[in-house]
C-alpha cells in the first residue's frame, strides 16, 4: 500500500476513536449524571474499587516508600545530606509516587475488571436487556463506576501516602540507622498541605480516567470472548498512558510551584 495512504488511514482511525470517545464522554456526563441515580450501584462499585483495592495499594505504597528511602540515602550520602531522606520520601510519595503508582495499579485492577464485566454484558446482550427494561445503561452501568472512581482513588491515595511514608520510616529507622523521633519530626515539619492536596486532586482525575476507559472499551467491545479480551487490554493500556500524560499536564500547569 502507498505509505501516504497508510499514514492517512492511521490518522483517520485515531480521529474516529477520539470522536467516539468524546461522544461517549458527553453521554456519560449528560445522561449519566442527570437523575435518576442508582446509589446502590455506586456503593457496590465504591466497595469494589475502594475497599477491595486496599491490600494492593497498601503493599505497593509500603515497598515504594521503603525503596525510595534506600535510593535517596545512597544519593544524598554522596554529599553528606542524609538528613534529607525523610523529607524527600514524604514529598515524593505525596506529590508523585502515591497518586501515580496507585492509579497505575488501579488501572490494572479496576479498568480491566470494568472492561471485562461491561464487555461481557455487551456480548451476552445484557446491555440490550437493560434498555428493554427501561433502564439507561449510561445511568446504571457507567455513571456509578465513574463517580466511584473519582471518589475512591483520592481516598486510596491518602492511605497510600500514609503507608508509603511508613515504609520509608521503617527502612530509615531499621536499616539506615535514623533516629525514629527526628525522622518523623523532619517528615512532619517539611511536608506542606499543598503536597498532599495536589496528589489527591491528581488522584481524582486519574480515578475518572481509569473508570471512563474501562467503561468505554467494555461498552464498545464486539465479537465474543476475543472482543472482550481486546477491550480489557485496550482499557488498561489506554488508561495507563492517559494517566501518565495527564500527570505531566497537571503537574506542569497546576502544581509546579
Amino acid at each position: 500500500m502507498n505509505p501516504l495512504a497508510r499514514i492517512g488511514q492511521v490518522v483517520l482511525a485515531l480521529l474516529a476513536e477520539i470522536g467516539r470517545l468524546t461522544l461517549f464522554l458527553r453521554d456519560a456526563l449528560i445522561i449519566g449524571l442527570l437523575p435518576r441515580w442508582y446509589p446502590r450501584q455506586m456503593l457496590i462499585q465504591l466497595m469494589r474499587m475502594g475497599y477491595h483495592s486496599l491490600p494492593v495499594i497498601g503493599l505497593t505504597a509500603f515497598f515504594t516508600g521503603g525503596v525510595l528511602a534506600l535510593q535517596i540515602y545512597i544519593g544524598s550520602s554522596r554529599f553528606n545530606a542524609e538528613n534529607l531522606v525523610s523529607s524527600i520520601v514524604a514529598l515524593g510519595i505525596t506529590r508523585e509516587l502515591g497518586p501515580v503508582l496507585a492509579a497505575l495499579m488501579m488501572a490494572g485492577r479496576v479498568s480491566a475488571a470494568i472492561a471485562a464485566e461491561i464487555g461481557t454484558m455487551r456480548v451476552t446482550e445484557q446491555i440490550d436487556a437493560l434498555t428493554t427494561l427501561s433502564v439507561h445503561p449510561m445511568k446504571y452501568l457507567v455513571a456509578p463506576r465513574i463517580v466511584a472512581g473519582v471518589v475512591a482513588l483520592p481516598l486510596l491515595v491518602l492511605v497510600a501516602d500514609i503507608i508509603g511514608i511508613l515504609g520509608g520510616y521503617v527502612v530509615g529507622t531499621r536499616s539506615l540507622g535514623f533516629n525514629a523521633g527526628s525522622y518523623l519530626a523532619n517528615t512532619v515539619n517539611f511536608l506542606q498541605w499543598d503536597d498532599v492536596t495536589s496528589g489527591l486532586i491528581k488522584a481524582g482525575v486519574f480515578g475518572f480516567i481509569l473508570a471512563l476507559m474501562g467503561c468505554y472499551h467494555g461498552f464498545n467491545s464486539r465479537g465474543g470472548a476475543q472482543g472482550v479480551g481486546r477491550a480489557t487490554t485496550n482499557a488498561v493500556v489506554s488508561a495507563s498512558i492517559l494517566i501518565l500524560a495527564a500527570n505531566y499536564v497537571l503537574t506542569s500547569t497546576l502544581f509546579a510551584k
Binding site: 454484558m121 451476552t124 440490550d128 427494561l133 433502564v135
Partner: peptide, 27 residues
C-alpha cells in the same frame, strides 16, 4: 415492550428474583 433474548441475557450479578423484578424496581 418485553423481550426474551436468545441467550436469556440475565444479569449474572443479581439473584433470579431481582432479574425478574428489575423492570419493576428500576424502570
Amino acid at each position: 415492550f418485553g423481550m426474551l433474548f436468545q441467550g436469556a441475557a440475565l444479569f449474572d450479578s443479581l439473584p433470579v428474583w431481582e432479574n425478574v423484578a428489575f423492570g419493576l424496581i428500576h424502570g
